[in-house]
């Protein structure tokens, strides 16, 4: 097997030789693998450049099992996700539920979606110890929520001019999740920062599918809840805390069914929102007695709203 020095000499001659590390074929001890090391898997070599980080609440949280790499043979940038099993509680409103990180689930979904442009792409291999290594293509784009947040237009203008296009694309993103459900898979972690807009094409793409839960009676409920949250964010051009809207006489029933600090009945704040669109949002409010049982049911209500917005 070639050494890192030999590999860099051939594929990455600009790489400083003093940083050349070790070639790893076993990724079990992922904490030991860092800058200048090479992971050899699936017939390719991946130069590790850094550990991926998640930035939350202003703090960088390193994910040591996720490596930013360069595929030496092609020069392409890749993300390698190594096996890290963990079980941890996550809070959703007042509920705490057990979440499991599942490399196998993510690998299975990567296979399922293949080159479907509505999802991130990648493939997976086993290293010499049987550890699953997911090799992900980088989505060159920006988070949808950041794009919406940075729009400077006022809400009436946004509603009329920008939201119809966003909604049309978002419906496509919802259809993508419906595709997973019809294949008995869940995304598992539908939140704003997991939906990206590709720079080159404007395509909406879902990322990160490795969360798994043990719900039996309503396995797709969390995904549906996540889609409702994002929809509410998009229609409101951000989340809205009732405390920021005094004088609107907002009741408990106007708020999210799970998050008491979010307004779901947005028509109370923005009367221009067409009622049929607001009615879709109300399915996710504390006042609802009717839940959507599947994504297609929601989309049947949502699709006509695009034209309604255009006529606003």
């Amino acid at each position: 097997m070639p050494t890192v020095r030999e590999l860099t000499r051939q594929y990455m001659p600009e790489f400083p030789t003093r940083y050349c590390g070790t070639v790893y074929t076993d990724t079990t001890e992922f904490m030991d693998i860092g800058y200048g090391d090479v992971i050899a898997v699936g017939g390719y070599h991946y130069m590790v450049l850094k550990d991926e980080c998640e930035r939350r609440f202003g703090i960088e949280d390193p994910k040591f099992w996720v490596k930013r790499c360069r595929e030496l043979e092609t020069g392409e940038r890749k993300i390698l996700k190594l096996v890290f099993y963990e079980k941890f509680p996550i809070r959703i409103g007042s509920f705490t539920i057990q979440c499991h990180r599942s490399p196998g689930k993510e690998a299975r979904i990567l296979d399922l979606v293949g080159s479907d442009p509505r999802f991130m792409h990648g493939r997976s291999f086993e290293d010499v110890r049987g550890n699953n290594v997911r090799i992900l293509d980088i989505v060159f784009g920006k988070r949808l929520d950041l794009i919406v947040q940075e729009l400077e237009e006022d809400h009436p203008t946004y509603l009329r001019k920008t939201l119809p296009g966003i909604l049309e694309n978002y419906i496509g993103a919802c259809e993508a999740i419906d595709f997973l459900h019809r294949n008995r898979e869940t995304h598992g972690d539908i939140r704003r920062d997991h939906l990206w807009v590709e720079y080159e094409t404007g395509q909406y793409r879902w990322i990160d599918f490795d969360y798994a839960f043990g719900f039996h009676e309503n396995p797709f409920g969390l995904d549906m809840f996540g889609l409702g949250n994002i929809l509410t964010f998009l229609v409101g051009k951000g989340d809205h805390n009732p405390a920021d809207w005094p004088g609107h006489n907002l009741t408990t029933e106007d708020r999210s069914i799970v998050f008491g600090n979010r307004v779901t009945n947005l028509r109370r704040l923005f009367p221009d929102i067409p009622e049929p669109l607001n009615n879709v949002l109300m399915h996710f409010s504390a006042g609802t007695y009717v839940f959507y049982e599947g994504i297609e049911e929601m989309l049947q209500d949502l699709r006509p709203c695009v034209d309604l917005l255009r006529k606003c």
Partner: peptide, 8 residues
Amino acid sequence: KAEEFLFG
């Protein structure tokens, strides 16, 4: 209601 919505 929220539990029913999320977990069935």
